[in-house]
C-alpha cells in the first residue's frame, strides 16, 4: 500500500476540518487509512463472515449445528445461494482492488505501490523485523521499529490475496464445473473441492484466531484496533506502533499533512458495534469449526 492520499480537506471522514486546532489541543490524531481502504476492509470482512458462516455448514453438513442452521434458513440450497452471493461481492471487491493498484502504480505512476517502505511488497527489513521481533519476545534484543506495514500485516494481506485466488478459482470451478471441464481434467474437479474446503478452513482458522489476536486483541490494541474503522489513530499510538514511519514522515516534514481530526463519537460507537459483532461471530464460528473438525 502506498502513501495515503487524504481527501481534499485532509479529513478521512470528509467533514470540514475546522476542528483541527481542537483535536491538536486534546492530543493529535493522524490518518492511517483512506475511506476507500476502510470500505474495502468492511466489504472484505462482511463477505468473509458471510462466506465462512455459509461455507462451514456445507463443509460440516453432517454436524448437528449445521443441520439446525440449514433447516432454519431453508436448507443447504439457501445456504449455497448466500455463499455465492457473498462470493460474487467479494470477487468484485477483489477485482476493484487489483484494478486500483495497477491503475495507481502503472498509469498514474504513484510511488511506493510496488516497492518501498509504504508498499505491501515484502522486503529485507521484514525479514530482519521478524527475527528481531522473535528475539524481542524472548528478551534477547530491542523491539523492532516498524514501518507503515509490519511483516505480519503484509503476511495477512498476501494470505488473503493468495487465498482469494485459490478459493475463488476453486469455487468458481465448482460453480461452473461443466465449463471448467472444457480445459481442466476430470480429477481437477475432485481436487477443487479439497482445495476449496482446506484453504477455506485455513483462512477461517487464521483470521478468527491469529488475525483477531495480532491486530485487535493483543494488549497494545485491546480490545479492538479502531483504526481500520475510524481511519485515524492518536499520535501516541502512531509513534509507539510504527516508530519508523513516524520518524520518516517527521524527517520528510510530511507529518503535518497527515494530521486529522479526532473521530466522531458516532463513528467510534458504530465501529465498536460492527467490530465486536464481527469478532463475536468469528469466535463462534471458530469454536464450531474446531468442534466439528475434531469430531470428524
Amino acid at each position: 500500500m502506498p502513501d495515503l492520499e487524504p481527501a481534499a480537506d485532509g479529513s478521512p471522514n470528509g467533514s470540514p476540518n475546522g476542528s483541527r486546532e481542537q483535536s491538536r489541543a486534546g492530543g493529535r490524531y493522524f490518518m492511517r487509512f483512506t475511506r476507500a481502504q476502510r470500505y474495502l476492509h468492511a466489504v472484505l470482512f462482511t463477505t468473509f463472515l458471510g462466506l465462512a458462516g455459509t461455507g462451514l455448514p456445507l463443509r460440516f453438513s453432517q454436524s448437528y449445528w449445521a443441520r439446525r442452521f440449514a433447516s432454519g434458513v431453508g436448507g443447504f440450497g439457501a445456504i449455497l445461494f448466500f455463499h455465492k452471493f457473498c462470493a460474487v461481492v467479494l470477487t468484485l471487491a477483489f477485482l476493484y482492488h487489483v484494478k486500483d493498484i495497477f491503475t495507481r502504480g502503472l498509469i498514474h505512476r504513484e510511488k511506493g505501490i510496488f516497492w518501498g517502505s509504504t508498499s505491501m511488497m515484502g522486503n529485507w527489513k521484514d525479514v530482519k523485523d521478524l527475527f528481531g521481533h522473535l528475539r524481542w519476545f524472548v528478551g534477547l534484543g530491542p523491539k523492532p521499529q516498524f514501518e507503515r506495514y509490519a511483516y505480519w500485516e503484509k503476511f495477512d494481506y498476501w494470505a488473503v490475496f493468495w487465498g482469494m485466488i485459490v478459493i475463488g478459482f476453486s469455487g468458481y470451478a465448482m460453480w461452473f464445473a461443466p465449463f471448467f471441464a472444457r480445459f481442466l481434467p476430470g480429477w481437477a474437479l475432485n481436487a477443487v473441492l479439497v482445495i476449496h474446503s482446506e484453504e477455506g478452513l485455513l483462512a477461517i482458522l487464521f483470521i478468527f484466531s491469529i488475525h483477531f489476536v495480532n491486530t485487535h486483541l493483543r494488549p497494545d490494541s485491546f480490545p479492538m484496533d479502531m483504526v481500520i474503522f475510524t481511519g485515524v489513530e492518536s499520535e501516541e499510538e502512531f509513534e509507539t506502533k510504527r516508530p519508523e514511519e513516524y520518524a520518516r514522515l517527521a524527517g520528510q516534514g510530511k507529518l503535518e499533512a497527515r494530521i486529522s481530526e479526532k473521530p466522531a463519537i458516532w463513528l467510534v460507537n458504530f465501529s465498536r458495534v460492527a467490530g465486536f459483532t464481527a469478532i463475536l461471530i468469528g469466535l463462534v464460528l471458530l469454536v464450531l469449526t474446531l468442534s466439528a473438525y475434531f469430531r470428524e
Binding site: F137, I195, L205, I210, N214
Partner: peptide, 24 residues
C-alpha cells in the same frame, strides 16, 4: 493443504502467544 494449514497455524500460534506474553 493440510501441511500448509498446520505449518502456518503452528508458526503463528507460537508467534502470537510469545507476543502476547511479551507485550503484557
Amino acid at each position: 493443504m493440510n501441511l500448509l494449514l498446520a505449518s502456518v497455524l503452528t508458526f503463528f500460534v507460537i508467534h502470537t502467544v510469545l507476543w502476547l506474553i511479551r507485550s503484557r
